[in-house]
């Protein structure tokens, strides 16, 4: 915005314009203000307080590739773990893997999904397995319910993390992050399991999970420990 209108007569006559001085001062003022804002923002953010949700409890191992050998990447896809031993009947129940469930619930989990609505998952929406009152085989039904509850929770986690992911990056790589939650869904541990090879991307992956927390309290069926990969570029 020009701070002051210009007089055409001034321009033609070549008369020095006073409004210019005003504009200059306004410009200097704004520049100073913005500089102060920058410094204030840096000062405010500088001490980098730990996430409010879990003060002092989040652990991050920075750039393990540079500091120590990486742990070997896990090869097998683990099943959702339950807090209690799984009933035998579960073995006969149809396999409900989180990924399969997600494939239906969220058609393209890897596509841009920042606008995908988070599922309506509240702690009360995760009925404990003992509530199951099915008639035929209560053990089998309970196991299926457990798997469904776990899958729904996994989807909720994924949606929340995906919504916090960076806007985009020209850097390429894949980072694997592991994290643990407490009973309230707060982040208690965060670790880089496999480096992308680029420290910036590793930090973006860790920051994404950290900023997505806290999560809904995990149902017993979902366990407390999770891993998530980030494909960049």
């Amino acid at each position: 915005m020009q701070a002051a209108p210009r007089a055409a007569d001034d321009r033609e006559a070549g008369v020095p314009r006073d409004p210019r001085r005003a504009r200059r001062l306004a410009g200097a003022g704004l520049t100073a203000l913005l500089h102060l804002a920058v410094i204030a923002a840096l000062l405010r953010a500088g001490p980098s307080p730990p996430p409010a949700a879990a003060p002092g409890a989040v652990s991050v191992r920075l750039l393990p590739a540079l500091a120590a050998p990486l742990p070997p990447p896990p090869t097998a896809r683990p099943e959702p773990r339950t807090a209690t031993p799984m009933p035998r009947a579960a073995l006969r129940a149809p396999a409900v893997k989180p990924a399969a469930t997600l494939a239906h619930a969220a058609p393209a989990p890897s596509a841009a999904a920042s606008t995908a609505a988070a599922p309506d998952l509240t702690p009360s929406a995760s009925p404990p397995a003992s509530d199951a009152t099915a008639a035929a085989d209560p053990h089998a039904v309970a196991a299926v319910d457990d798997a469904r509850i776990a899958a729904a929770y996994v989807q909720a986690l994924w949606t929340q993390i995906a919504a916090a992911r960076p806007s985009g990056t020209a850097l390429h790589g894949e980072a694997l992050v592991g994290f643990s939650l407490d009973a309230d869904g707060r982040l208690v541990a965060l670790e880089l399991l496999q480096s992308s090879g680029n420290g910036l991307l590793d930090r973006l992956a860790l920051r994404t999970v950290r900023r997505a927390a806290p999560f809904p309290p995990p149902p017993a069926a979902a366990g407390r420990e999770f891993r998530i990969a980030f494909h960049f570029g």
């Binding site: 652990s59 683990p78 989180p98 596509a111 994924w158 993390i161 960076p166 670790e191 891993r227 998530i228």
Partner: peptide
């Protein structure tokens, strides 16, 4: 640190 037996979430693409 989380154990290797943790539940794996689908990957997030950036």
């Amino acid at each position: 640190a989380p154990a290797a037996t943790a539940t794996e979430l689908p990957a997030v693409a950036v």
